[in-house]
Simulated scan of single mutants.
Amino acid sequence: MRTDNSKIKEIFKDLPFSDEQIKVIESVFHKVNFKKGNTILIANDKVEYQYYILSGCLRAYHTDKQGKEYTVQFGIKDWWISDYTAFFSDSKAIMTIEVIQDATLYRISKDDKEKLYSQIPAIENFFRIKLERAFAAFQKRILSNLSQTATERYSNFIKTYPNIEKLVKNYHIASYLGITTESLSRIRKDLSQN
Rank of each mutant, 00 (worst) to 15 (best):
residue 11 I to E: 02
residue 168 V to H: 05
residue 143 L to Y: 09
residue 66 Q to M: 13
residue 52 Y to P: 10
residue 149 T to G: 07
residue 52 Y to W: 15
residue 148 Q to L: 15
residue 79 W to N: 07
residue 152 E to H: 06
residue 43 A to E: 15
residue 59 R to F: 04
residue 54 L to S: 15
residue 28 V to G: 06
residue 15 L to M: 12
residue 58 L to K: 04
residue 21 Q to Y: 01
residue 146 L to S: 06
residue 135 F to S: 11
residue 11 I to Y: 01
residue 43 A to Y: 05
residue 37 G to C: 03
residue 75 G to E: 08
residue 130 K to W: 08
residue 102 D to A: 07
residue 10 E to Y: 11
residue 81 I to Q: 12
residue 73 Q to S: 00
residue 150 A to T: 08
residue 80 W to D: 02
residue 120 I to V: 10
residue 161 Y to I: 01
residue 17 F to H: 06
residue 122 A to T: 12
residue 145 N to W: 09
residue 16 P to W: 10
residue 52 Y to Q: 08
residue 11 I to V: 12
residue 133 R to H: 08
residue 69 E to A: 08
residue 104 T to P: 04
residue 48 E to Q: 12
residue 89 S to W: 01
residue 35 K to N: 10
residue 21 Q to W: 01
residue 50 Q to F: 02
residue 160 T to I: 12
residue 103 A to C: 12
residue 74 F to P: 11
residue 24 V to E: 07
residue 56 G to Q: 05
residue 58 L to A: 02
residue 33 N to A: 02
residue 165 E to Q: 15
residue 61 Y to D: 03
residue 96 T to M: 03
residue 173 I to N: 13
residue 2 R to H: 14
residue 25 I to L: 07
residue 121 P to E: 00
residue 164 I to K: 07
residue 170 N to L: 09
residue 85 T to Y: 07
residue 82 S to G: 08
residue 170 N to S: 15
residue 17 F to I: 04
residue 159 K to P: 06
residue 106 Y to E: 04
residue 171 Y to L: 00
residue 67 G to C: 11
residue 153 R to F: 02
residue 102 D to C: 06
residue 186 R to K: 13
residue 67 G to H: 06
residue 152 E to I: 09
residue 147 S to K: 11
residue 179 I to A: 09
residue 56 G to T: 04
residue 2 R to Q: 14
residue 127 F to W: 07
residue 70 Y to L: 08
residue 158 I to D: 12
residue 122 A to D: 14
residue 135 F to Q: 13
residue 121 P to K: 00
residue 63 T to Y: 03
residue 101 Q to G: 04
residue 127 F to H: 01
residue 71 T to Q: 04
residue 122 A to F: 08
residue 135 F to G: 08
residue 164 I to P: 10
residue 113 K to L: 15
residue 57 C to K: 04
residue 101 Q to M: 04
residue 180 T to H: 14
residue 4 D to S: 03
residue 38 N to P: 00
residue 160 T to E: 15
residue 82 S to C: 07
residue 100 I to D: 07
residue 66 Q to H: 11
residue 16 P to S: 15
residue 11 I to Q: 01
residue 70 Y to Q: 11
residue 161 Y to C: 05
residue 86 A to H: 05
